[in-house]
């Protein structure tokens, strides 16, 4: 099998070099999909694969598609992926332990089978001689493509437009959240707080939540505020830190200060 020898289309050595440099890179980047645990890394590597493909397109005498590939995939689609990864959780690294029985083996089998079959077919097929696009791209490639798109394929093109609009609407609807309750503004919040206070809630609910870090010796956000009796006020520490268990205990605060405040509180109690 040596199609190159007979073809009128002779691929340059430069293209060969380009291919043999980029193709392994693209495969490695694609394999990242299978083996990396960090979603962001995967997205970045796939973006790389897309760029590699864009270069291949250009080499294959399709500069218009090459540019479009960069714009659409690398610029729009992969960025959209990154946004969603950000929304869903950057650090939600996924364990690679398979949970479905036999799934991994089936996947490996299917993958190898696909590669063998596809490559086998492509290599074994009696392909025609390469013609090259010199003639088709006589008026530059974008013009040639445009002639087809706005000529032979104009109806499909219009349909694609409709599809895009529908997709945009669909995405809007899918991510739309119906407001089921009344919007809670500042006034409503204040009213609710006062009402809770009237019902016998603690005084804490009526005032502004105390800020953390007042008695801090270091990074303040994890140090709870203390109330008048020297007790830590839970709500002063950000929820995230509390859930992670990174909240500082009273013992980690300035002991003297705490004692002073506690003493004042005691005095107050005696006065009362």
């Amino acid at each position: 099998m040596n199609p190159v020898a007979q073809t009128g289309l002779v691929l340059s050595t430069g293209e060969g070099v380009l291919f043999w440099v980029l193709a392994p890179l693209a495969v490695i980047g694609a394999l990242w999909l299978l083996f990396s645990r960090r979603t962001v890394h995967i997205a970045a590597s796939i973006a790389g694969v897309m760029i590699a493909l864009a270069i291949f397109y250009t080499a294959l005498e399709a500069p218009f598609l090459g540019v479009a590939q960069v714009v659409v995939y690398t610029g729009a689609v992969m960025m959209l992926f990154l946004f969603v990864i950000m929304l869903v959780g950057v650090d939600s690294s996924e364990s690679l332990v398979e949970t479905l029985a036999g799934q991994r083996w089936i996947a490996v089998l299917g993958g190898i089978g696909l590669v063998v079959l596809v490559v086998g077919i492509v290599v074994g097929a009696k392909l025609p001689d390469g013609v090259g696009l010199a003639q088709a791209n006589a008026d530059t490639n974008p013009v040639g493509v445009a002639r087809l798109i706005f000529g032979e394929f104009v109806f499909s093109f219009e349909l694609t437009g409709a599809l895009l609009i529908t997709a945009a609407l669909g995405a809007l609807i899918l991510t739309h959240r119906q407001r089921l309750s009344k919007r809670i503004g500042q006034r409503e919040l204040a009213d609710a707080k006062l009402a809770a206070f009237g019902q016998g809630g603690s005084s804490e609910t009526i005032t502004v939540t105390p800020s953390p870090g007042v008695y801090a010796r270091h990074n303040s956000a994890d140090s709870p505020a203390l109330d008048a009796f020297g007790e830590p006020v839970q709500s002063s520490v950000p929820t995230v830190l509390r859930i992670r268990g990174q909240e500082a205990g009273v013992d980690q605060l300035d002991a003297d200060r705490v004692a002073t405040i506690a003493a004042r509180g005691d005095m107050k109690e005696i006065d009362g």
């Binding site: 479905l100 799934q103 089936i106 996947a107 089998l109 299917g110 993958g111 089978g113 696909l114 079959l117």
Partner: peptide
């Protein structure tokens, strides 16, 4: 699982 079935079927 469904996708696996499809792949095996295709192959």
């Amino acid at each position: 699982s469904y996708a696996a079935t499809m792949t095996i079927g295709l192959v």
